[in-house]
Design a protein around this nucleic acid. Structure first.
Lengths: 123, 123
DNA sequence: CGATTAGCTAACCAAAAGGTTAGTAATTGG
DNA sequence: CCAATTACTAACCTTTTGGTTAGCTAATCG
């Protein structure tokens, strides 16, 4: 059961969005975007314990957003942003609904579908 | 106590990414993208109870992604995709790290910062 | 060698998430 | 009017999340 690509797309989105839903983890990602770092470097800005930071790193790693590379007693952490691509792809499908210029189109689609949907049960 | 206006931008991101981290809620959003719907219409495809669906709607509403408009005993639910814009803006900052053509640039930045960071404690 | 350091685990805790069933309020259809 | 429908609350349960402290292992320093 090789895990490389094998989680359902849905489970992967669960993990990525879940990882992004915490401010501490977003700050860790921001830090990693400026270069790889050791665990204790990542922990330094936060008022929480080191094991707590480790758990955040576990969450990020589980979401595929962080890779750890152990060298001696030091773990070097690297950003892996690729899973963000599918997260953005998910959100991107909704752009039409917030994009000002296409607001009219969105409303049109909504109205049209509303009618189409109502050949079902109600009324 | 004025932070930014309503909820701190961070709290809003927490709520939006948190809302997106569950497959049931993503399916509800996808349904709403095809037009507004009643609560029981939204609940119909799922094997969970109606109150459970209501809780998911609460989460979406709390994230600003759903508006409810009560008309008699029926609640009509509408998608409000605008909060997704800031979520996408957050992710977008990382595009450079997964975009193939700019991989070299990303690596360059990483290496440069790695050096810059290491004027701190270690080694 | 011995002490220190980096990064974990393990065990525990409180609170939040996600689900349930039962009951309630307001509307609507017969 | 009565009964059914819609969408909730309330109360409860279990699992997950985010934190703690204590302790362990392996590597490095003096």
């Amino acid at each position: 059961m090789r895990s490389t690509q094998k989680r359902s797309r849905e489970a992967r989105l669960d993990a990525v969005f879940g990882a992004l839903s915490d401010g501490t983890r977003r700050r860790i990602l921001a830090r990693l975007a400026r270069g790889s770092a050791r665990v204790s470097d990542l922990a330094e800005p936060f008022a929480i314990s080191l094991p707590a930071v480790c758990k955040h790193l576990d969450v990020l790693e589980h979401a595929g957003l962080l890779r750890r590379e152990r060298d001696g007693r030091v773990s070097r952490c690297h950003l892996d942003a690729r899973p963000l691509e599918s997260a953005e792809a998910f959100i991107e499908r909704y752009r039409v609904f917030w994009s000002g210029t296409l607001e009219a189109l969105a409303l049109y689609v909504e109205k049209a579908q509303e009618l189409a949907d109502q050949n079902l049960p109600s009324r």
